[in-house]
Design a binder for these strands. Structure first.
Lengths: 342, 342
DNA sequence: TGTTAGCACTCGTTTTAAAAGAGTGCTAAC
DNA sequence: GTTAGCACTCTTTTAAAACGAGTGCTAACA
C-alpha cells in the first residue's frame, strides 16, 4: 500500500480537523470537509488504509481517528503551510529596546506564550568563541581581591578571591600586567598547564592567588554555565486536557519550566542540521516527561555571532503552521533589529 | 457570646481535623475526636455558637463545618503547637557549602518544597546598608569602558559604558582616583547633585563619562533591583483541589511562581514587626490571586547583616504547625552555618 | 473496479432516577 | 446543661437507560 494523493488529502483533512477540535474525527466529517466529493463509506475505506499504514490511530473501536506521531511528522514535513505571521506586539517590545537584554528577553518570551498559548522559552544569546579580553584584579580589602574577567563580546564575570596576606597596590599592578600580557586573547583550550605553572613561578609568594584567579578565568570562560533560560506560559499546559489530565505528568512539566532545569536538552543537540526551525513530535524529543508534547525550536543570531534559541512546548496537536510562522517572523525580527541599530 | 475553654477545644478539634482531611467536619466526628465526652448534640449547639461568632462556616446546609479565616487566625495565634523539626536533609545541602550561593539557595528551596509539599520561595540575602566600597573604571577597547562597582558585603555590579572618544590609561587612573576619593563609603542618599556637578567639572572633557558612571553607581546601589527570587514546587498547587479546581486561578498562581513577578509583595512590608516568622491567612495577604492561599514567611540573616526571606504558599488548610516548625529550624540552620564558617 | 447506501454492532458519554449518607436543627425528656 | 430522637436538607453515589458518534461489512450500483 502506498500514499497516493487522495490519501494525503484525507490525512491532511483529518489532521487539520483534529488540530482544531482536539476530538477524534470521523469519516462523515471528512466527507463534508474536503471537496473530494466522496461518501463517508469511501472515506472509511481510505481511513482503514491510513490506519494500517500507521498514520492515524483509533482511540477505541467506535471512535473517529486521531493522527499518530508518524502522521504528524508527515504533515509537518510535506503538508504544512506556514505563513509568516505579523508579530507587531512583539516587535514593539523589541523596538523599545530595553537597555537590559534580560528585560527584553523576558518580554519576548512572555508575549510569545501569550500569543501562541503554549509554554515558551528563550535562551540568552551567547557567543561561541569564548576568548578572554582582559583580566582585572583589584583590592577590596585586606582579605579580599576582586577578579573581573571580560570576555569577547564584553561579557563580564566577577569573582571575589580570598587572600591570606595583604597584597599592596604595586604587586597588584604587576600581577595585572603579567596576567593580561600572557592571557588576553586566549581561549580555554589555549591556556596550558605549563603557562599556569609559569605564571605561578613569576608570581612568587603570590602563586596561591594566581591559582584562584585562573580558576575564576576558567569558570568565566567555560561556555556552559551561563546558558540563561527564560520561560513563560507553563500554565498553558493546563489548557490542554491531553497534558493536564494526568496531573502527575502535568506537575512534572510545570516544574521543569519553573526551575528551568533540563530545558537545555531541548535546545542543544540540534546544532547539526542548519535548518533554523525544528519540530520534534512526541517521542522524537528526548526530555523526559515530554513524550506527549511537541517542541518547536528556532535559533536566532545577533550581530557578533551571538546565538540563542527560542522554543515552544505544547501538545502534539499544536498549531504547527502558526507556531512555525510566528517563530520565523520573530527570528528575523530579532536579527533585523540588532543589525540595524547596534 | 464569648469564647470559653470548651469552645476553644472544639474549634481546635475542628481545625485539626479539617487540616488533615480537607473535608467539612461534623459534630459526630468531634464528639469522638475530643476527650470532652460530649454527645454530638451538645457539640452541635456549640458549633452553632462558633458559627455565629464567625470562627467556622457551613459550605451548605447539610454539611459539616470548615474554619473561616478568623478561625484559622485564632488557631495560629493561640492554639498552634509548632515543634522544631529535623531538617537534616536540608542541613546536608547547607553543609556541602556550594561555592555558589545561588546553587545553595536553589537547593534549599527545592528541598523545602519537597518536604512541605507546598510552593516555596527564597530570596537571596542582600545587605540593607548599601554603601559603596569602591569603583573601578577599566578600558575595554576604544569605544567601551567597564565600570565595576563594589558594594558593602562585596556585592559586585558591572556596567559597560560607551565612550565617544578614546580615553588613555593616564586619564583613567585619574578618574579612578577621583571617583574613589569622593564616593567610596557613600550611600545613595549621600551622593548629592552638587557632588556630581563637582565631579563632572573636575573630569573636564570627560564629564559625559562621569554621568554614565554615576548612573551605573546609582543602578548598582539601589537595593530594589537585585531582589533575586528562587522558587520551587509551584506544581504542588495542583495537589490541593481548593486551589486547582478553578484552573484559571491555578494557572495564574503557577505563572506567578514561574515568572517570579509580584512575589516581592509577599516578602516586603513585613519588616515592621520583628517577629521572624509571619503567617498570612487568605485575604490577609495582598498579592492578587492568592486570596485562597495562606502564606508563611520567615526572614533569615547571614553574617554581615545580609537578610533574606523564605516563603511558603499553600492552601488555607496548610499544616501551619509543620510549616512554621520547618521554617524555624531552617532559619536557625542558615544562621548557624554562615556564622560558623565564613 | 471503485463507490455508495444500508444496517448491525460497539463503546464511550449523557441523562435520569433512585438511593444512600452525612449532617443539621429542633423538640422534648432526662 | 445535656442528650436522644427524629424530620428534613442537600450532596454524593450508584445504577440503569438512552443516546449517539462512528465503525466495519455486505450487497448493490455505475
Amino acid at each position: 500500500m502506498e500514499m497516493d494523493e487522495r490519501k494525503a488529502t484525507i490525512l491532511q483533512a483529518i489532521i487539520r480537523n483534529y488540530l482544531e477540535t482536539g476530538e477524534p474525527v470521523g469519516s462523515r466529517t471528512i466527507s463534508k470537509y474536503t471537496d473530494l466529493n466522496l461518501s463517508s463509506a469511501t472515506i472509511r475505506n481510505e481511513m482503514a488504509d491510513l490506519e494500517e499504514m500507521g498514520y492515524i490511530l483509533q482511540p477505541h473501536t467506535s471512535a473517529g481517528r486521531i493522527p499518530s506521531d508518524k502522521g504528524y511528522r508527515f504533515y509537518v514535513d510535506t503538508m504544512m503551510e506556514a505563513k509568516d505571521r505579523e508579530i507587531s506586539e512583539m516587535k514593539k517590545v523589541l523596538m523599545e529596546r530595553q537597555d537590559k537584554l534580560e528585560d527584553m528577553l523576558k518580554g519576548v518570551v512572555k508575549l510569545l506564550a501569550k500569543d501562541t498559548q503554549y509554554a515558551s522559552l528563550i535562551t540568552a544569546p551567547s557567543a561561541n568563541r569564548n576568548k578572554l579580553k582582559f583580566i582585572q584584579l583589584s583590592r577590596i580589602d585586606d582579605e579580599h581581591l576582586l577578579t573581573v574577567v571580560v570576555k569577547e563580546g564584553n561579557v563580564i564575570k566577577n569573582k571575589v578571591v580570598d587572600v591570606t596576606e595583604p597584597i599592596n597596590e604595586e604587586t597588584l599592578l604587576k600581577l595585572n600586567l603579567m596576567l593580561n600580557t600572557q592571557l588576553s586573547g586566549m581561549t580555554m583550550d589555549e591556556i596550558s598547564l605549563s603557562m599556569i605553572t609559569g605564571l605561578k613561578a613569576q608570581a612568587g609568594s603570590h602563586s596561591g592567588v594566581i591559582s584562584e584567579v585562573i580558576d575564576a578565568v576558567a569558570e568565566a570562560i567555560s561556555a556552559e554555565e551561563d546558558l540563561k533560560v527564560y520561560t513563560s506560559g507553563a500554565n498553558n499546559i493546563l489548557k490542554y486536557p491531553e497534558l493536564s489530565d494526568n496531573s502527575e505528568k502535568a506537575g512534572h512539566l510545570i516544574n521543569t519550566f519553573e526551575e528551568r532545569e533540563g530545558l537545555e536538552e531541548l535546545i542543544i543537540g540540534g546544532e547539526d542540521g542548519d535548518e533554523a526551525i525544528k519540530v520534534y513530535i512526541g517521542s522524537e524529543n528526548k526530555v523526559s516527561g515530554m513524550e506527549d508534547c511537541s517542541v518547536v525550536t528556532a535559533t536566532y543570531e545577533l550581530e557578533g555571532g551571538m546565538k540563542g534559541t527560542i522554543g515552544i512546548v505544547g501538545p502534539k496537536r499544536m498549531d504547527y503552521d502558526k507556531v512555525v510562522g510566528t517563530l520565523k517572523s520573530l527570528r528575523s525580527g530579532l536579527d533585523d533589529l540588532y543589525k540595524k541599530d547596534n
